[in-house]
């Protein structure tokens, strides 16, 4: 455990809390992609299947439970909450997520560390997490005006994997035999998808203007 890893996990948790705060406080999920949230739930469930028999640390277990619970809660708000579900931007959130799920599943079957059910599901979750933000980015692009909390949510979420990259570099330098190239490559792709968004987010922040994405 190092400072980069802890910072990354805290950033990830913060991003989720910002999203829940937005939904709970404003009773609105405008600008939030349900597709992305459902993909994240799929990521967490397939990766943390081992929760009940693979105890690593209390830290890990608590985070796993929190991630599954909070993403379920967000989906519940967006699909079931009387007021919130009416603000869901259904007409713009039309990304076909099978276009992400099927290639990730096929890739996990071909490129994995070991050919076993749980290893393949875990690998699938790594691949899927890398691209799960795409429906959200497409939705932001379509609606253009991004409210503060939604902008902060996406920013923190992108920063989280960037800090994991620092953690991997640190671990590679300090731990003998530490190697995980599937995770590294996926993490690089995942962070790369945010670069464009980071650019506009930081521009808007520097000029203290509202975040607006170009067409």
């Amino acid at each position: 455990m190092n400072i980069f890893r802890v910072s990354a996990d805290i950033l990830h948790l913060l991003s989720i809390l910002v999203l829940l705060l937005k939904i709970h406080a404003t009773k609105s999920c405008a600008g939030i992609s349900l597709k992305t949230q459902e993909l994240y739930l799929a990521v967490f469930v397939t990766r943390y299947l081992d929760l009940f028999w693979n105890f690593h640390s209390l830290y890990n277990s608590v985070f796993k439970v929190v991630y599954i619970a909070t993403s379920s809660m967000i989906i519940w708000y967006m699909k079931r909450h009387r007021g919130v579900k009416q603000t869901y931007d259904k007409d713009h959130d039309t990304f076909r997520y099978l276009f992400l799920i099927v290639p990730c599943a096929v890739l996990a079957l071909i490129v994995n560390g070991r050919f076993s059910l749980f290893e393949i599901l875990w690998t699938f979750s790594i691949y899927l997490e890398a691209v799960a933000i795409l429906p959200q980015l497409v939705l932001l692009q379509r609606t253009k005006n991004v409210d503060n909390l939604t902008g902060n949510y996406v920013f923190l979420l992108g920063l989280y994997r960037a800090f994991y990259i620092l953690n991997w570099i640190y671990r590679y330098a300090t731990e003998p035999h530490y190697s995980a190239w599937i995770v590294w490559l996926s993490g690089l792709v995942q962070t790369g998808l945010y670069l464009d968004f980071f650019y506009y987010y930081l521009q808007a922040w520097k000029q203290s203007k509202k975040l607006q994405l170009p067409s």
């Binding site: 994991y164 190697s179 599937i182």
Partner: peptide, 10 residues
């Protein structure tokens, strides 16, 4: 090994 070492991460 592609990812075995990363199983202790989240």
């Amino acid at each position: 090994e592609g990812g075995a070492a990363a199983h202790d991460e989240l």
